[in-house]
Amino acid sequence: MIEARHLLKTFRDRKRGEVRAVDNVSFVCEPGRIYGLLGANGAGKTTTLRMLATLIAPSGGGAVVAGFDVTTHPAEVRARVGFLAASTALYGRLTARETIAYFGRLNGLDDARIAVRTAQLAEELAMEDFLDRRVDTFSTGMKQKTSIARTLVHDPEVLILDEPTLGLDVMAARGIVRFVRECRARGKTVIYSTHIMSEVEKLCDRVGIIHGGQLLAEGTLAELRQQYGEEDLEEIFVKVAGGEAIA
């Protein structure tokens, strides 16, 4: 469960002055559902998700993630969250097994539990062949699998995924989509940010369209189609975002 209430984040920027990267954003993500955060570059997706993952603190408002307040209990939140972003990289000189063990230990698992989880994840993600090779020799797809394994090592109830398919080829991206669906099937709460319409159409139970830091529209795909009188999500997005940008 994720409940964001009037989330606000301002940055001080030397050129632009005070930037409201996230401005009064509220939404709820239910367990067993995938919530899609759809937005263009600079819309505020990463900033929102980083606040939910307690990497950065909100300037105003708040959020309750997996039953804990992000401001008062950040460590408890992180222990129940798996955060995966295009920007979260792996240590090149560790093997896949060592990577999983490292994050398992940081999540408080003991050696026996780590061994069990490693075996489970390696089987589910078909990682057995490269489990003991160093990450810097991996293909992008292998790295992606290792990243998923390290995100899931502590079996988190909430998954926060920030453009996880960025830079992946079709096959690797499909792998991610399948993994997200499996997480939903296991009853996890998933929030998924992207700017790719087709991913939202394939995956998401609810969609929030974020633009200029503000959540401008929200609902199931069917609700949004009805509300804006358009079939195509891209058309809906353009309408919500206030027309075509001419620049």
Partner: peptide
């Protein structure tokens, strides 16, 4: 620069 710090920071370790 490599992005591993963000990965590390999203673990529960303080």
């Amino acid at each position: 620069e490599r992005g591993t710090l963000e990965t590390l920071l999203c673990s529960p370790a303080s």
